[in-house]
């Protein structure tokens, strides 16, 4: 166990190194922030001065070494757009992002587990057809459409929830349903097929023939063993949610990671893009690591 953890943490270092290199190159070759920063009346001289001031006139590898040198000391550079250090700007988005991600996963789990189990145990019944139908629908609905429909119905028409923003519990409801719905759809289908596979296994037949209650067979023996693929999907979805869900955040004006990144990309705000990708990448790696740990918890046969 200890060995596994040490190995996993050591693996993070080269991966993160590669990510900083790739992002640095992508950000620096795809656009010139100077042209976007200057005003329409700027002269060539103004342009040259600003380029030099930002250090963008130096060769790319020099810029990269400077960037890495500062990075290793915890300095992610300065945001052109906000004129302050980039890392705090990224970190201050994390609570909002975590909050929405956690609520969405909760919504997804609460919907998908009962529906998935029901639809597997009542296979081919009317209920199963309905649940499967709903999950196809849930996956097919684009989030911007669902988000706007929820606003129109629950906020504008019924007046039940606030339209947008962040701060109260009520403001969290609609965006987490919007995001949770698509994930729930995917998880429901996955739990259903995974359950069906497990339910046809020999040990389930053994359990039933022992005369165990069906509830115990389903929940204790089948459900738990069907969770492994589900955990993988949950880990992947969580890292997607941490990375920011652009469209949903924009619709509900949720001040999370997605909005920050898209605006930074548009403004060619290199330091913010680099710092944000760094943090997101770290979360993707960590959540995958956690998924590995959970496998071992669920299935003791998987050895560390």
């Amino acid at each position: 166990m200890k060995g596994f953890l040490i190995k996993a943490v050591l693996q993070i270092i080269p991966v993160m190194f590669l990510i900083t290199l790739i992002v640095f190159i992508l950000v620096h070759v795809t656009g010139d922030p100077v042209t976007l920063m200057l005003s329409e009346t700027a002269t060539d001289e103004d342009r040259r001065v600003l380029t030099a001031a930002l250090g963008l006139d130096q060769p790319l590898f020099v810029q990269y070494f400077k960037y890495m040198f500062n990075l290793l000391q915890g300095d992610f550079g300065t945001s052109f757009r906000y004129n302050t250090a980039a890392l705090p700007i990224v970190l201050e988005r994390l609570p909002a992002t975590f909050e929405l991600a956690a609520a969405s996963m909760l919504v997804a789990t609460l919907i998908s587990i009962p529906l998935g189990i029901l639809s597997a145990t009542k296979r081919n019944s009317v209920l199963d057809v309905f649940i499967t139908g709903f999950s196809v629908l849930g996956k097919a609905m684009p989030s911007f459409w669902l988000g706007i429909m929820l606003i129109l119905f629950f906020s504008v028409y019924l007046g039940l929830f606030p339209v947008s923003g962040r701060g109260t519990f009520a403001q969290l409801v609609l965006p987490s349903i919007t995001l949770g719905a698509a994930i729930a759809a995917e998880m429901t289908r996955l739990i259903r097929s995974s359950m069906l596979e497990i339910l046809s296994q020999d040990y389930i037949r053994t359990a039933r023939s022992k005369g165990l209650w069906e509830t115990i067979v389903v929940y204790k023996h089948a459900f738990r063993n069907s969770l492994i693929p589900v955990v993988t999907i949950m880990a992947l979805q969580t890292s997607t949610l941490i990375g920011g869900t652009l469209i949903t955040e924009a619709i509900f004006s949720w001040p999370g990671m997605g909005q920050l990144v898209i605006q930074a990309v548009n403004a060619r705000d290199m330091a913010i893009v680099q710092a944000a990708v760094f943090i997101i990448a770290l979360f993707v790696i960590v959540s995958n690591l956690l998924a590995d740990l959970v496998y071992r918890l669920l299935d003791p046969r998987i050895k560390i």
Binding site: I148, S155, V156, P162, V163, S164, S253
Partner: peptide
Amino acid sequence: VIPEDATRVAELLT
């Protein structure tokens, strides 16, 4: 700050 037009209008209407 409400970037999405439809949301800005919905906030006003509500």
